[in-house]
């Protein structure tokens, strides 16, 4: 076991983890933050995207021990109390989800996309969504949501 100390959604955590535990399992099973999803076993779907030190990463392809001494934000840490984050609000307004399984990863990826790109357009959003799969929407309303959110951020 190794000691992991990190800050997640503003809360400090200090806990022993098994070296082979994936970060996503630590977040879901140990910390009970089940908004972060596991949608595949091949690092492709992006349902597990979170922010580690402000950068979007796939938490299924990272070990919990690697996250020692980092600051993590998951989907649970986005909203400000009762008021949704602009990206969450935009997904709701624009019907950017259907079953909702990919949505936490989509939204975490979207926040990162908007942070990195000052002049977003549809082409950039579609390219940037390379690592996030959605099996319901056909992406139309996801793209619309991200563009709408980028106007407000």
């Amino acid at each position: 076991m190794s000691l992991v100390e990190l800050e997640i959604n503003g809360k400090k955590i200090s806990q022993d983890v098994e070296e082979r535990q994936l970060l996503v399992h630590f977040i879901r099973d140990d910390l009970n933050l089940t908004g972060t999803h596991v949608g595949c076993d091949t690092s492709q779907c992006g349902a597990c995207v979170i922010h580690v030190d402000g950068k979007a990463v796939k938490s299924c392809s990272m070990l919990a021990v690697q996250a020692n001494d980092t600051k993590i934000t998951t989907i649970e840490g986005l909203a400000d109390g009762e008021s949704l984050h602009p990206v969450q609000e935009a997904f709701r307004e624009n019907h950017g989800l259907q079953c909702g399984f990919c949505t936490p990863g989509m939204i975490m990826a979207a926040v990162d996309i908007i942070n990195r790109n000052s002049n977003l357009d549809e082409k950039i959003v579609r390219e940037e969504l390379e690592g996030n799969l959605c099996r319901c929407t056909g992406y139309q309303n996801i793209v619309k949501s991200i563009l709408a959110a980028s106007e407000k951020m």
């Binding site: 690092s43 979007a56 990463v57 390379e130």
Partner: peptide, 9 residues
């Protein structure tokens, strides 16, 4: 290479 999340790591 890969996708944005992979490129970050």
């Amino acid at each position: 290479i890969g996708d944005p999340h992979v490129r970050n790591m």
